[in-house]
Structures are given as C-alpha cells and as structure tokens.
Write a protein that binds this DNA or RNA. Structure first.
Ligand code: MN
Ligand code: MN
Ligand code: MN
Ligand code: MN
Lengths: 219, 219
DNA sequence: AATATTTTTTAGACTAGTCTAAATTTATTT
DNA sequence: AAATAAATTTAGACTAGTCTAAAAAATATT
C-alpha cells in the first residue's frame, strides 16, 4: 500500500500534468505540496522505485499507468466524500474540501462503493469537477471560463477553477451557484469585467479575475 | 494535535484501565498494540510530556483528564462510524470495525456532530458498546455475560465481549443478534455449556466459551 | 535474605518524511 | 562561447515511530 504522503504527491502530480499536459518539474510539485524541492526529490526517488512515476534526474516526472490509477482513485474518493458531506451532512461547498482531504485516504473498497451507491452514482462533485468511476474513467465537460464568452451569450454555470473558501463564499454571497443560468449582459472593454444576470433575475458586476474562475457551457 | 499513533495508544490505555480499573503495565499496552515494550516506553515518555498520561518509571500509567478526553473522543468517533456503516451503508456488524479503526482519526468536529445527528443520536454501537456523548459521558448498561445466568432466566441480548470477525459471524450463523430474547433452557453442569432458545423459536447449544462472550440483561 | 525470574527501561540502529546548505546541472544572457 | 542565473540534486541533520539487545529495577522463589 501507499502512504498518505505518497498518495498526496501522486494526486498533486496528476493535477499538474492535467493542467499543462507535460512532464512536471520538481519546483512545481514543491509549490503545490507546500514543501521544499529537496523533499520532493527524495519522494520522487521513492515513487520511481515503486514504479509509480517515470523519473529521470532533471527531466521532470510523469505518472506510470500504475501511478495514474492510484491518483485517480484518490481523486475519486475525495470528490465522492465532498458530495457526501454536501448532500447528506449539510456541509456548504466551501467546507467540504478540508475534510475530504483527510477522508480521501481511507482504505476500503466496499466503503467507497457504498458511498457511491448511497449518493446514486454522482458524476460531478460540489465544485463541478468530474468524479472518476471505479475504473478511473472521467466524464469530461467541455466548459470554459465565462471570461471567454461574449455579450448576450446565455450560459449554465458548471464549475469553478479556484476552490478557496474565500472565493466560494464570495460566489455564495453573489448568488452564484452551479446550475444557475448566467447571461452576459455587458463586457467592459477596459478591464474585461462583466455585467451578468443570474437566473434572469439579479444582475451583478464581476471582475475579470472572478470571471476567469467561473466555468460554464452555452445553454 | 495528536498523531494517529498517539490516539491509538490513548484508546488502548483507556480500554485497559476500563477492564481492571488500575494502572496499566507497559507489557499490557505492548500486547494490545501489537508492538514491543521498548516502543511503548518511548511513547509513554512522549504522552507524559504532553500531559496526556500519569507516568512514573516502572509504576504503570493512568490517563490524565486531558488524556481521557482524547481517548473518549476517539472511541466516540469509532462507534459512531461503526453505526453509520451498519445503518446507512449496509455493512455487516463483523465488517465495521476495521474501517472505523481508520475513520476514528478523522479530525472534524462538524463532521462527527453531523454524523451523530444523521444517525439520530444513537446511544450504543453495533456491538452493544455505549457511544460517549460529545462531553465524553457514557451511558452504561448493567448487562452481564449469559454464562452468569441460571436455568429459565429470560434475557435480552445487549452486546458482545469478543469483537472478532470469526465470533460475530458464528453468532450470525446461529441466529444470535442484539435485541434477541434468549431463554436459558438448560445449564450443563459438566462444562457449563448452555441450551438456549432464541426469540422463543429456535433452540441451540453453545459452549461456555461462547456464553462468556455474549452479554445480556434480564427481560 | 539471597537468588532467580520477570518486567521495564535504556542504548543504539533503522525507515519515512522533512529541512538547510552546498554542489551540480540546465537554461538564459551577454 | 563564456558567464550568470535558475532549477535540481546531494549531503547531512532532525523528528516520529519502530526494533533488537543489553542493563536495570521490581517481583517471586527458595
Ligand atoms: Mn490528502
Ligand atoms: Mn471538489
Ligand atoms: Mn485507530
Ligand atoms: Mn464496536
């Protein structure tokens, strides 16, 4: 079996590869893991010995099939637990992450299969991220940041890029939630900020910084 | 905060004190924790430094108020999780322990409060053991092993002493479950084995070894 | 009371994971 | 192409938790 630490490294590497689709650097991992490059190098050696990553000194790392399987399993558990906390235990979407960060390391196939069933096999987590199935297969959404749409586009909010408590609470306060209809009423040329309407009712202004972190698809 | 290991030691010490109501020995802890006496001594020093136990070399240990609080919190979490697995996720009573052993270390007050609420504040776990409340208060049952009752006593099964998979599966097979009515039909003098009826229906024989591990109260 | 046995602690070593500081390699600038 | 800067790795040290073997203390036996 793999330790919590190993699982966290594999998940971090998976997400970094997902972002740029290329081998990830020691420094990138160190930043993501809140640790030092020297510690990362030590861990890379260990993960390489265990055939979980492809690693050659100075060349960055990618995941082996085996390593990717572990990463996807951890992500699956994380997102299912987030969904469970939200749906069954009345957690808010800004409260689920930290607890899921712990629960994702619980080791029991039956447990996670039963949670999945209990939730009726959800496909996306509270932040709109896809939940890998038991074989690691992911159902992708072709959503884009709403900063990429233009005036009069009518959208459905499907996810967020930033998962921080501060950002999620700001969205709550603004009345923005997954599934909401968002219409681009105005794009301010100067700073790319937006005027948008939510569910045909309230109209709000959001900065380009915020817009970039909201994902949606055309309705 | 305390590590998983520290929590497991404190829980073990709590249970050993509960059994005999006296300071527990290094060897007793080593046996319970499946470790060596030397390792225990090291840990006792650490727990003592953290004011979680009263410890003087060669004199055995007891828990401080602080240590007992931690132990009770871990036990509370363990038993609530067992109940959750049984009631909500269709686990059998012989399957819950190992997973709860991991889940008991998840650190989130809200999580455990919500699980408690979700289960409607259960007072006993799937094995009949009391669930400490949020303040560590325990509701005790005055049940005794059925080996201590006599012919024609009518009882209600309230718990088990042995929690092993093998024993619990044997009880399942024999039709013995918490809440069942047990009547002592016959006590065999020679080996203290029993003939008992379950819910006024089936009648079975059980050895004294088994009888000692079944808890009940008079109906 | 002296001796033998058992229990407990200490000493020293090992692994996992982390760190700082120094050395090395790769990338960028001149 | 050389020099400089940045990224990465190595060396050595530290903590948590564990182990074996040896020493010390407590307990039991004669
Ligand atoms: Mn994690
Ligand atoms: Mn999420
Ligand atoms: Mn445990
Ligand atoms: Mn139990």
């Amino acid at each position: 079996m793999n330790s919590f630490t190993e699982e966290n490294y594999l998940k971090a590497i998976y997400k970094l590869i997902e972002q740029n689709d290329e081998a990830v650097s020691t420094n990138a991992i160190a930043k993501k893991m809140n640790t030092k490059a020297a510690s990362v190098t030590d861990m890379l050696k260990k993960l390489s010995d265990k055939k979980l990553i492809h690693y050659q000194k100075y060349q960055g790392v990618t995941l082996t099939a085996k390593g990717e399987k572990v990463a996807l399993s951890v992500i699956r558990k994380h997102r299912l637990w987030e969904m469970f906390l939200l749906e069954k235990l009345d957690f808010k979407w800004d409260e689920v992450h930290d607890v899921a960060e712990q629960l994702e390391h619980i080791n029991s196939d039956k447990l996670i299969a039963q949670i999945d069933k209990f939730l009726n096999y959800p496909k996306f987590d509270p932040h709109g991220d896809p939940i890998p199935d038991v074989n690691g297969k992911i159902q992708t959404q072709k959503s884009k940041s709403i900063a990429n749409f233009k005036k009069n586009d009518v959208l459905v909010m499907t996810g967020v890029v930033d998962h921080s408590t501060a950002f999620l609470q700001y969205l709550d306060k603004s009345g923005l939630a997954l599934g909401n209809e968002i219409k681009i009423k105005e794009v301010i040329e100067f700073d790319r900020s937006l005027q948008i309407s939510i569910n045909k009712k309230t109209t709000i202004f959001i900065s380009n910084d915020v817009a970039k972190n909201i994902l949606a698809i055309t309705k």
